[in-house]
Design a protein around this nucleic acid. Structure first.
Lengths: 135, 135
DNA sequence: CTATTACCCTATCGGTTTAATAGATTATTA
DNA sequence: TAATAATCTATTAAACCGATAGGGTAATAG
């Protein structure tokens, strides 16, 4: 299940990307338009800024803005930051690998082979979609 | 993330399916071989029995057995019982649909369209794999 | 200079889920 | 009847999630 954090984060990024003439988008505007808790969204945008997706400007008239072109922001990057591993099981995760403590041999695990397939398919979708596709 | 419940359930089903001459497989045997907590596995096998995947026999020499041919047990069925919805978001779930409370219009939601793709791909994998493929 | 706006940080909290454990009961076989 | 194995009920500890609270800090308009 996708966390609300990720869902809200994607919505916020999409919202910001949609603004053409407006350069800075304040939290309150996004929170109202997308029905997201102001404070919760605040923390999400903060991590997105620290991860290099967003820039921000303080003070009156301030807000958030995209640091890259939406075309250059693949979903894989966003999802990994907000949600964590894309794989359903740590032992098939590319970026967050962890060994199973109950499995002796990974390669002979029946679940392993199935989850590799799921991971590859999901990965393909996330790689083929950038923020530009969501807008 | 896949819950241990589902993971253990799949492993147990695979284990039972692998036994040729043995008709009844007791919990303890599976728990030992697969390194699963006996009591936890107990509750998992119980739901698998109540869902129609397994049959059981009490008493000495008792245990669990498959009710169907492994070829006739698609992963979709098992996953839905043990894990719940396959979709990452309730609003794109086929069997566990739920409306988003923050979305006005589903069709125009950017996350929605992305998650539909993920769901379709994952579904395809689970449909193409039966218990026989795991064995 | 000052008030306003908005980002930034820390802490907490209730609720839910997860994984596991414990104990008692019922059914079957040898 | 004794041993075995499934069944049922219940409780637990830990982790996580979504949300909230309150204040601190920085920048800008007027």
């Amino acid at each position: 299940m996708l966390s609300k954090k990720t869902k809200y984060g994607l919505k916020a990024l999409t919202y910001i990307a949609r603004q053409k003439d407006v350069k800075l988008v304040p939290i309150a505007t996004i929170a109202e338009s997308e029905n997201i808790s102001h404070k919760f969204l605040e923390s999400i945008l903060l991590t997105l800024r620290k991860s290099g997706f967003l820039g921000s400007k303080k003070g009156k008239g301030g807000g958030y803005y995209l640091l890259k072109d939406p075309v250059d922001i693949p979903m894989t990057d966003v999802i990994r930051i907000l949600e964590g591993p894309i794989a359903l099981v740590p032992c098939v995760s590319l970026n967050y690998y962890e060994k199973c403590d109950d499995c002796k041999d990974e390669k002979s695990c029946s679940v392993y082979r199935l989850m590799i397939q799921v991971r590859d398919n999901t990965l393909q979708v996330f790689r083929n979609n950038t923020l530009a596709d969501l807008v």
